[in-house]
Amino acid sequence: MAFDIAKEHLEKLGLGDRIHTFEVSSATVELAAQAVGCEPARIAKTLSFMVQGSPILVVAAGDAKVDNHKYKDQFGVKAKMLSPDEVAGLVGHGVGGVCPFGIKDGVKVYLDESLKRFHEVFPACGSASSAVRLTIPELELASGSPVWVDVCKAWQEEGKQGTEQSGMAGMTKTA
């Protein structure tokens, strides 16, 4: 059901032809990178947090880790991830398929600076066996969030700047 909601959202924006489904799980960054055929850094992972009683999503590069100090400076609270049960109920997607579109009303989405080094990234599409290939401007459009934050670390380390190789191995197009 969450996949269908995310797909419908993307189709309304003219991005439905970018959705791909897999015969294998894409529930983790590593599995998604294998399914897509790209480096893990280009997987746009969507992290779910609670801020002042409301759920928020932070979309970050697959090789980025939340920096607690930066997060607290940005949001004014300690980073507290939602439990798997809370994610499904509050966001609308289950863990492994959380994406920043087709979500419940009132969930704010923030895009992390770690994504800006790529032309295209691959967020999930509402299920643990899907992804969608989006440019950064398309990600902004699809997520409804042109709001960028800098709350992650580790991605700027030497050798982690990423490359612009294209993935798509093993994908089945779902349009």
Rank of each mutant, 00 (worst) to 15 (best):
Q52I: 01
A79I: 09
A128K: 11
M50F: 05
P100I: 03
T46R: 06
V77W: 08
V77A: 12
K104G: 03
Q156D: 14
D105P: 14
S145K: 01
G94H: 10
Q52C: 06
E157A: 14
G97Y: 07
M171W: 09
K70H: 13
C152A: 15
G144T: 04
V51D: 00
T21R: 13
A27V: 00
I43V: 13
E23I: 01
A124M: 12
F122A: 07
A169T: 05
K65D: 09
T21K: 15
L134D: 03
Q156V: 04
K65G: 12
C99T: 11
E86G: 04
G144W: 06
G102I: 03
L57F: 09
V132K: 06
V132C: 12
D105R: 10
D112K: 08
I136Y: 05
L134E: 10
P84Y: 02
L13S: 14
R42S: 12
T174A: 11
T135K: 04
C152I: 00
A2Y: 13
E113Q: 15
D105M: 10
G62Y: 04
T28N: 01
V149L: 13
F75V: 03
K104R: 15
G92M: 03
F118H: 02
C125L: 08
I56Q: 07
K70C: 03
A169V: 08
S54C: 07
V109D: 03
F122I: 10
I56C: 01
A142N: 07
K78T: 10
Q34I: 10
K7W: 08
V91Q: 01
T174N: 14
T135C: 06
S48N: 10
G62F: 02
S54A: 15
A60R: 03
V87P: 02
V51N: 04
R18E: 11
K70E: 07
Q34F: 00
A79C: 11
L47F: 03
S54M: 09
C125R: 07
G162N: 07
I103L: 08
A32D: 11
S130C: 14
A128H: 07
A35D: 09
A88D: 04
S143N: 12
V151Y: 11
K108P: 01
A6H: 10
E86Q: 15
K7Y: 15
K45C: 01
P137L: 01
L90S: 08
H93L: 02
H9L: 03
L115P: 07
V147R: 11
A128R: 08
G159E: 07
K45Y: 11
F118I: 00
L31Y: 02
S26C: 13
D4I: 05
V147Q: 13
I43S: 05
G167P: 07
V132P: 08
G159C: 15
Q34N: 11
A154E: 15
F3Q: 03
D112N: 09
K72H: 12
A128T: 14
A79F: 00
T28S: 14
L139V: 09
C38G: 09
P123N: 05
V132G: 07
S26H: 10
Q156T: 15
K7G: 01
V66N: 09
G144S: 12
